[in-house]
Every structure is written in C-alpha cells, then in structure tokens.
Design a protein around this nucleic acid. Sequence first.
DNA 1: GGGTCACCAGTTTTT
DNA 2: CTGGTGACCC
Length: 679
Amino acid sequence: MFDLNSLNPQQRKAVTHKKGPLLLLAGAGSGKTRVITCRIAQLRQQGVPAEQILAVTFTNKAAREMAARVQEVVGRKAAKGMVIATFHSLCVGILKVHIDRLGFKKNFSIYAAADQQRLIRDLLRGIGAENSSKAADQVLWRISSAKNHLIFPDNYQPNDRDPLSSLVATIYPRYQKSLKAFNAVDFDDLLMFTVQLLEQHVDLHKHYCERFQYQMVDEYQDTNPVQYRLLKLLASTHGNLCVVGDDDQSIYAFRGADIANILDFEHDFPGTKVIKLEQNYRSSGNILAAANAVIKNNQKRKEKALWTDRDAGSRIGYFLCQDGEDEARQVMEQIHTEKYRGQLNYGDFAILYRTNSQSRAFEEQLRYENIPYVLIGGQQFFDRKEIKDVVAYLKIIQNPADEVNLLRILNYPKRGIGEGSIDRIIRYSADKNRSLWKVLQQVDQVAEMNDRTAAACGSFVDLIKHYQKRFKQPLWLLETLQELFTELKLAKEIYRQEKDPQVAQRRVQNQEELLNSMSIYLERTPQPTLAGFLERISLFDDDAPGKNDKESKLALDAVTLMSLHSSKGLEFPVVFLTGLEEGFLPHKKSIYETFDIDEERRLCYVGITRAQKQLFLLGARQRRKYGKLEQREPSRFLSEIPEGLLHEFEGEQPGNNAPEDEAASASHFFDNINQMFED
DNA sequence: GGGTCACCAGTTTTT
DNA sequence: CTGGTGACCC
C-alpha cells in the first residue's frame, strides 16, 4: 500500500476525496500521476470494487504506465477488473459488444489516416472534384472536426462563405455510407458512435453508469467535445468524476481540444471540489519563476503558481545567435560543457522546437560532432507502406467487406489482375449493388473477364478463405502469420521493387517487426485472436520493440530532438528551447490566422517546464527560409521573463570575416577525420 | 508499371 | 531550399 503521510496536504486531500466531482488542477511536475494512482488505491481500500473504477487517458503509454503503477500499489489481484484505457480503446471495447445496434457487424475494421484518405480520394474522383492528397486531407480534416463536435452527416450545415464546406457537405454523407458498407469505422467514429449508442439506448446508458461509478480522466485539458459528452453521459448517475489536468498545458486546440472543458468544469458539474497542486518536484526555482512569469500573461486561466522548496539553481541561459547554424553550434557547445561540468549523459539533454523542420540544423550538427541523438516524431511505424500492405491482408481476412484494403492488396503482390480488370469488377459491383468480395467470388459472371484474370481472382479468394480458417486457430497465430508472409513472397516483392538493397532490407525487417509484435501480443493476451491483434495495432498500441517507439528511443543514451508538442509529460535535466523568435514561437499562423497567441504561450510554458536543472533559450537574428535569408525578431515571450533570471550570451560575432570562419570549420573537419582514423 | 521531371507548398498530431 | 506529388512517357 501507500503512505498518506508521504503526500503533501493538497495531494492528500485529492487522494482521500471519494464522492462527487473533483477538479484537480495539477501544475507541471506536481506529482499528478502519483495522486491518480494513490486515489485509485484509496478507493479500493475503502471498498470500491475494482470493476466500478474507470481511468481514461489519451495515450497508450499513459494508460500502460498508470496500469502498471496501480498494480504496484494495490497488487495485481485488487486491480483486476479495473478499466484503465485510452478513450479510443474504451470505446472499441463498448462498440465490440454493441455496435450491431448501429447496423455494423462485430468484426468491423478501424480505418486510420491512410485508409481514410484513400476512401476520400475515391469519393472525390467519383464526383469529379479535385482529387489531390491535399484536397482529400482538407476534406478529411473537416469531417474529423465535425465528428469531434458530434455533427452527424445529416446535420452538417455548409457555410455559403466557405467553398470547402459545400464539398464536405457532399462528401461527408457518402464517406459515412461507404464506411458502413465496408463495415468500417474511423477513429472519430469510435467516440462519436459510442456517444450515439449511450444517448439512444437507455439500457446501455444505465448499464455503463452502473458499471463505471468512479471515473478518473487524465489530461482533461485536452478533451474535445465528444469526449466531454461521453464523460458527461457516464457520470450522469453516480457522478464521481475526477478530472486531472492543467489548463496552462492545453496545446491541442488544433485537433479539437477545447480548453473551456477544464475552465468550465465547476460550472458543468455543480458541487465540484477544486484542488490545486502547485508544489513542483521537477524544476529549480529560476526555471519555475520564468515559467510562472510567462504564463501569467494569459488572461483566461485558472490562477495558480508553481513553487518549489528547492534552490533557485543556475540562471537561464539565453543565446541570441547569428543564424540557424550558429544556434545549432551553440547548443553543441553547451552540450559539451554541461556534459563535462555536470557529469551528465547525452540522454540528459533535449532540444525542443516548434516545428519539425527545425530539427534539421541540429541533426546535421549532431552528426558532424558524432553525438548520438534520437529524433522523435516523423513517420509512424504503421504508416509505412510495407506494414500497411501486410496489415491490409490481415484486415481483409478479418473483414472482407473492407474494400479500401481489398483494393490495396487485390493485385499486390502482382497476381495478374490488372487495372482494367479491377475497373470492370468495381463497375459490376456498383451496377449490381453487390460487394466487391461477393463479385470476386462469382467473377465469371463479370463480362469481358478473361480466363486468366478470373482464375487469378479465384485463387485470391481461396487464399483469403484459407487464411480465414487458419487464423481461427488461436494457438497458431504466429505460425500462420509467418506462413502468410512466406506464401505471399512479400520479401521477394520488396527486393524486386526497391533498387537500393539497404532500403529494401530495412523494409523487410520492418515487416518482420510485425511478427515480433504478434508474438508479444500472444505472450500478453490470455485469449488471443486475429481480431484482438488487429485492434491493438489499429489503436497504435504498438508493442513492437521497434526503433521508432518513443519509449525505447528514450532509453538510449542519446540527445533527444523533438517538437514542443511531443515533449509534454516528459522531463530532462537540460533543455534547449530553440527558435525563440516571432514567427516560430509564437508561430506566424497563430499571429495572422488563428489569433491564438495564448496557445503558443502555453506551448512555451510546456517547453520551459520540461527542464529540471538547466534551461537554455535560443533564437537567431536571421534565418534561411525557403532559400532566402530572413531577418528575425526575438519572441515576445522572452520579454515576459524577468531579466534577472536570464544570463545572456551572444552567439558568433556578426560580420565574422569569412576566411577565419572557413579556417575554423576546416580545422574542425580535420579533427573529426583524425578521430575517425584513431578509432 | 516504373522512372523522370516539373511544380507546389511549407505548424503542432494521441488514437 | 526541401520533400512530396502528379503528369507524362517509355
């Protein structure tokens, strides 16, 4: 168990709160995860059955960590039956049981971005609209945003002033209809349909209110309107809703998060008890003072101020650099100095920036200096073509109605079903109003289908049916997957297509990661099924020990490079907050288009509060952008930090004569060459 | 079906 | 300046 005396007074109050709505305003580094786990333990101790406890997070990582810590505190047995899940997996769990009430079959597929985009592009082509990936993304973005606001296709109102919205009004209903025909739902549907189910079916609503009498929500400031509605529904009978969050760290407005959810919580849930956690256990005094000074410029916020009983620590370094390269070099210099001075590892440093494109200058410099680094963000494992191809097979085996994925693999690897034949099959399917899968099974009825193509379709159908049977054997999932790889000769196909053998090898290895993923799934799941495996990977609950996993990346001893958004929730002894210039932070879009400087300020606040011991702020006087040199102004947020907290450095002297510069970098270059030979 | 070239756009992104 | 995409050609 845990010791109440080890908590500070506010934490203790939060942990012992039992009934009624609770708003926990948890500042950065205030030990909120600890409070959540202890509160769950406390509830159990007071006799609340595990089954009645629900804890919701945004990310799989957060859910996994919370589950692990709860188990640590209360023990495995007392934790059994609790639901600690992401919003999405909670909803999948509910839909898996009840989605037939919405007219879907229970083996429904989940469409991720790539599947969605393919479908939207098909639909755009169908109405003769511009079918570029960017047009599709725009439409998709609007549909997603509608769904986040619980606007169903028949309620979508196009806006006369906005040409895109009339296109969306056309596409959205068709998109939704296609999804249903394919027995598929997208990520936003998972939430929207769950809300719909609970709103339309009183018995289900009642059932889940009784089931989950105590709810805890982490990162509540990031909830969007659907999530809010879902929580409101679940809390409507017993109302023991405890939300934890920090309005100052709300940085996801662009994807629908509504900061009003946390600001208005007391109003929305009458009788709310509010507790502020303001003692910070992460950062030194100067860092907190800077963070507080910046964030207090936001008007709409819950008043709070972080404090610590630790030392002020060293002052915050500010480097006004000549340009982007100079900025990168200053960071390197500080890494060398601080690493030596503080006996630190490379893993203790993080370089943060507003936009991912800013990582390049740092990457180049780090590589030049032979400093190990990891780049967080970028292409996701399951977004890679070779992975999507294999997953498409699995999805078809599970749900042959899924036509987006069916078309993806019908002729991959090539089996002699050309574009023309595919067109004829699609047209026949549309004419007769029969599913593609059905048409493929009676392909001889399609006119103008030559025998060879018909035979190819036949063997494709047989292949899928064969594996449908094979994958029903839960004990042989891994072997069957291996068998599928071998039968499809996927590795061969990749080597054939990809000229660069190294790239090809990497892609084959990526596919093999999927086998690892499966074997981990088998180890952890008492009753494994193909559907269960697909659900995991569709929800990005990526167990693959892949190099692209944020957690395993952070385990290496390497400097971390990531966007401010990705950094939320993490901490590092030394943090470099880079690109502190007008146009980057605040970003120019926020200045001229969305007019939400406050969100940028929160982003800055998130960056500052990642630092434990040492914070460096950097910005450049000029920067090369889109090929030409641009003058830059220091960020307005810098002037919000009291001067006494800062220690200002100048970067390279302006007008440094070129010859000297070249000589310096040349000698550096030879140093590195020499080092290489010494190894 | 694949390779090349011209053109365009350029914030953040869990699930 | 880059990377990604679409059109076009073999």
